[in-house]
Lab assay of single mutants.
Amino acid sequence: MEQGTVKWFNAEKGSGFIERENGDDVFVHFSAIQGDGFKSLDEGQAVTFDVEEGQRGPQAANVQKA
């Protein structure tokens, strides 16, 4: 798993970007967020995640709040 920080997340659209510790920013969709309840992330929040190849390039998967 990688570690990173939420660069921004739009709760209305359900997507945003995570700033990786090593590498380019990666797209995140709300469906990749693990946990119960409303799936959203806050700017500056620390997260851990896997990276998968999506239709438009790398994207975060199995996102967990650190």
Rank of each mutant, 00 (worst) to 15 (best):
residue 51 V to S: 04
residue 26 V to Q: 01
residue 26 V to I: 13
residue 24 D to H: 11
residue 66 A to T: 12
residue 10 N to G: 06
residue 7 K to Y: 01
residue 31 S to F: 05
residue 48 T to V: 11
residue 31 S to I: 04
residue 5 T to H: 12
residue 63 V to K: 00
residue 52 E to P: 00
residue 41 L to D: 03
residue 44 G to S: 03
residue 23 G to K: 09
residue 35 G to P: 02
residue 47 V to D: 03
residue 7 K to A: 04
residue 22 N to M: 09
residue 54 G to K: 07
residue 5 T to D: 05
residue 27 F to R: 02
residue 23 G to T: 03
residue 37 G to I: 06
residue 25 D to W: 14
residue 19 E to C: 15
residue 59 Q to P: 02
residue 46 A to R: 14
residue 31 S to P: 06
residue 50 D to S: 13
residue 32 A to M: 05
residue 49 F to V: 03
residue 48 T to A: 06
residue 54 G to H: 07
residue 59 Q to G: 03
residue 16 G to D: 01
residue 51 V to Q: 05
residue 58 P to F: 09
residue 50 D to V: 14
residue 29 H to V: 00
residue 57 G to P: 07
residue 12 E to P: 02
residue 51 V to C: 06
residue 14 G to A: 02
residue 33 I to R: 00
residue 50 D to L: 12
residue 38 F to A: 07
residue 40 S to L: 07
residue 22 N to V: 09
residue 35 G to H: 07
residue 16 G to T: 00
residue 12 E to Q: 13
residue 33 I to K: 00
residue 7 K to V: 04
residue 48 T to C: 13
residue 5 T to P: 01
residue 20 R to F: 06
residue 57 G to H: 05
residue 20 R to N: 05
residue 33 I to E: 04
residue 12 E to G: 10
residue 5 T to A: 03
residue 61 A to D: 02
residue 35 G to L: 07
residue 35 G to Q: 09
residue 64 Q to N: 11
residue 49 F to L: 04
residue 64 Q to Y: 08
residue 47 V to M: 02
residue 16 G to H: 00
residue 41 L to G: 04
residue 30 F to Q: 07
residue 44 G to F: 05
residue 3 Q to E: 09
residue 46 A to T: 11
residue 45 Q to S: 08
residue 20 R to P: 04
residue 56 R to E: 08
residue 54 G to P: 02
residue 39 K to Y: 04
residue 27 F to C: 06
residue 5 T to G: 01
residue 39 K to T: 07
residue 59 Q to N: 05
residue 12 E to I: 12
residue 27 F to E: 05
residue 47 V to C: 04
residue 52 E to L: 13
residue 13 K to Q: 10
residue 22 N to H: 11
residue 45 Q to I: 08
residue 53 E to A: 11
residue 52 E to M: 13
residue 30 F to K: 07
residue 24 D to C: 13
residue 63 V to R: 01
residue 65 K to C: 09
residue 42 D to P: 07
residue 53 E to F: 14
residue 36 D to V: 12
residue 29 H to P: 00
residue 61 A to V: 14
residue 29 H to L: 05
residue 22 N to C: 13
residue 10 N to H: 05
residue 42 D to T: 15
residue 39 K to Q: 09
residue 50 D to T: 14
residue 60 A to V: 02
residue 28 V to K: 01
residue 59 Q to H: 09
residue 15 S to D: 05
residue 62 N to P: 01
residue 31 S to T: 12
residue 50 D to K: 11
residue 52 E to H: 11
residue 61 A to Y: 09
residue 11 A to S: 11
residue 4 G to F: 00
residue 7 K to M: 00
residue 61 A to S: 11
residue 7 K to F: 01
residue 40 S to P: 04
residue 38 F to M: 07
residue 7 K to D: 06
residue 3 Q to S: 13
residue 44 G to C: 10
residue 26 V to K: 00
residue 51 V to Y: 05
residue 2 E to M: 13
residue 28 V to Q: 02
residue 23 G to V: 03
residue 34 Q to V: 14
residue 56 R to S: 10
residue 32 A to V: 06
residue 2 E to D: 07
residue 16 G to E: 03
residue 40 S to Q: 08
